[in-house]
Amino acid sequence: MITAERKPLSELVECVRPYGRILLLGCNECVTVCAAGGRKEVGLLASSLKMAFSKDGKNLDIKEITLERQCDPEYVEELAPHMGEAEAVLSMACGCGVQEVARRFMDKPVFPAVNTKFMGASERQGIWSERCAGCGDCVLGITGGICPIARCSKQLMNGPCGGSSGGKCEVDAEMDCAWQLIWDRLKALGLEKRYEENMPAKDWRPGRGAGPRKIIREDLAR
């Protein structure tokens, strides 16, 4: 999923200060799962903002809406009837959702309420960690199911570097060394020999190397 963390309240208060009526948007997808911008978080943020402004004697009118998917024009269209009254939009979706709302409603200021972080997985309740860098040319099939690009601090394709110690990365003692994980898994699979195949210099074009990316599925796009 795409993970996100809510921005500090003080920053959000400054974003909406000029406005009297705002639309506060949640998204029912990834940001709900990572507890950053679902219906529940929308409610909590609305109360916090109202409280923050009521201290200054200001009444902030907040309309709360949580869309099924904010990165999808079909769902974003549902906002059209509510947009007229709103002076600004505060979106708790990931950056994709924020941009979709901005694209559809050209004349409304849209502010992000979360910082979009990474594509990751849930380690356990309340802990998410990065798993995929979206390089566009997946190597997991040869690296034992652990991504060196997303999970090695130096994105080494032929690690581990000299800073791997006790299974941890030199950058942070709490961080697993991706290449230790890769090695452990290759061993478990009986594929130790594969380690010695040098991975060639990566072609970054399928990733961000060739500019912003687009997928066109002719069969569906017709």
Partner: peptide
Amino acid sequence: AANPFADPFELRVARLAK
């Protein structure tokens, strides 16, 4: 460079081979 003292030790010769 080569660091024979980093972990995992069992990979250190293999990494030199690479």
